[in-house]
């Protein structure tokens, strides 16, 4: 028998929280499909399928009931975030390996739902970009920047057969972040770089609209009180302040803050990745420190790192600091003079 309270707010559950986050991903996902072709549907389907199968398998191995844990929606959300982070025209086994790292290694080997130290989707992404960097460039170019617009069937063909009626070369293109990084290091003038087809109005072509849709979804999550303002605001502020300072020092070598916000996974990271409650800091001050430093690291990695986008590594590095941050940022408890110390 359990004691008080005898009532529950009722309209919330882990599944409901996950469902709200997935609902908020819909605008961004549709924009993604609009600008980068139907490949996202293929990768989303594959990641989702692999994730469900692996989750079921691991639950079975761990002797846990399938229904409540498969039904909580957490593994589908992980798969969705992973699919949105990966290039959409990679071979099918890449999605399998990514999902394997996300679901098996990052989640279940750490104890399953609620126990994992690192963001599962980002672990999947990180494993792939370290292990298979070449395949991680197979991003379809945005419409208007590539010669051929892909059909769903062609996307399937590319993912499963690797080669079909169209070749990867015809439909993939370097991303704006990648181009900026390589070209500024080569000394190409900024004006010249920015006229290339993968650049849009303020960020990366296509990506900037997708990012705006993630922003929209994030605001929905805020208004639904699924997340608090602390992490997204601190994350974006970290990016803006760091990139803004660099841009002021040397505009020829460093992109402006708007470009950083509206290219790559900045918006996705701010509202959907860094906010993963299990792996993020949980105290109000802790959230600001955690996300602010993650935003800072995003720009540092994009600027000086070996990888085109820094969101995954920035989040993973800060995940590792979360237990420490949380311990030292407990708020002042009612009736106490000062904040608690561990």
């Amino acid at each position: 028998m359990t004691g008080s309270p005898h009532v529950h707010v009722g309209n919330t559950s882990v599944a409901a929280v996950m469902a709200k986050v997935m609902a908020a991903l819909i605008p961004g996902t549709i924009a993604h499909a609009w600008f980068f072709g139907p490949g996202i549907w293929v990768s989303l389907l594959l990641c989702g399928l692999f994730a469900l199968v692996l989750e079921a398998l691991l639950l079975r191995l761990r002797g846990l009931p399938l229904k409540p844990f498969l039904g909580d929606g957490s593994v589908l959300l992980t798969a969705w975030l992973l699919a949105l982070s990966l290039p959409t025209l990679a071979p099918w086994w890449l999605y399998l390996i990514g999902t394997l790292f996300a679901v098996v290694v990052a989640k279940h080997l750490y104890g399953g739902l609620g126990q994992n130290l690192f963001n599962p989707a980002m672990v999947g992404y990180a494993a792939l970009i370290i292990g298979f960097p070449a395949y991680m460039t197979l991003w379809p170019g945005p419409i208007g920047a590539v010669d051929h617009s892909l059909t769903l069937w062609e996307a399937f063909d590319l993912v499963f057969a690797g080669q079909g009626a169209v070749s990867h070369d015809a439909v993939t293109a370097a991303t704006a972040l990648d181009t900026w990084r390589t070209q500024t290091r080569l000394g190409t003038p900024v004006d010249d770089i920015l006229t290339r087809p993968m650049f849009g109005w303020i960020g990366a072509r296509g990506h900037e609209i997708v990012a705006a849709m993630y922003l929209l979804g994030g605001l929905l999550l805020l208004s639904a009180r699924v997340i608090t303002w602390h992490i997204p605001v601190a994350f974006l502020a970290g990016i803006v302040l760091t990139s803004g300072a660099l841009h002021l020092i040397d505009p020829a070598a460093h992109a402006d803050p708007l470009f950083h916000l509206f290219s790559g996974a900045a918006m996705l990271g701010a509202f959907f990745i860094a906010t993963d409650p299990v792996t993020a800091a949980s105290t109000p001050r802790g959230k600001l420190i955690y996300a602010g430093l993650a935003g800072f690291l995003v720009v540092v990695i994009r600027t000086w790192g070996a990888y085109p986008d820094g969101v995954a590594f920035a989040v993973l590095l800060m995940n590792a600091c979360v237990p420490f941050i949380d311990d030292y940022t407990h708020p002042r408890v009612f009736g106490h003079k000062r904040a608690s110390k561990p």
């Binding site: 919330t12 739902l113 608090t228 949980s282 105290t283």
Partner: peptide, 26 residues
């Protein structure tokens, strides 16, 4: 009857609701 409990996901909903400013999940 109370729904069966799932693992804590550290969503901090409890901390936001606590009138004493505790971190109940911790």
């Amino acid at each position: 009857p109370r729904a069966p409990d799932l693992p804590c996901i550290r969503c901090d909903a409890c901390a936001r609701a606590c009138p004493v400013v505790l971190q109940p999940f911790d």
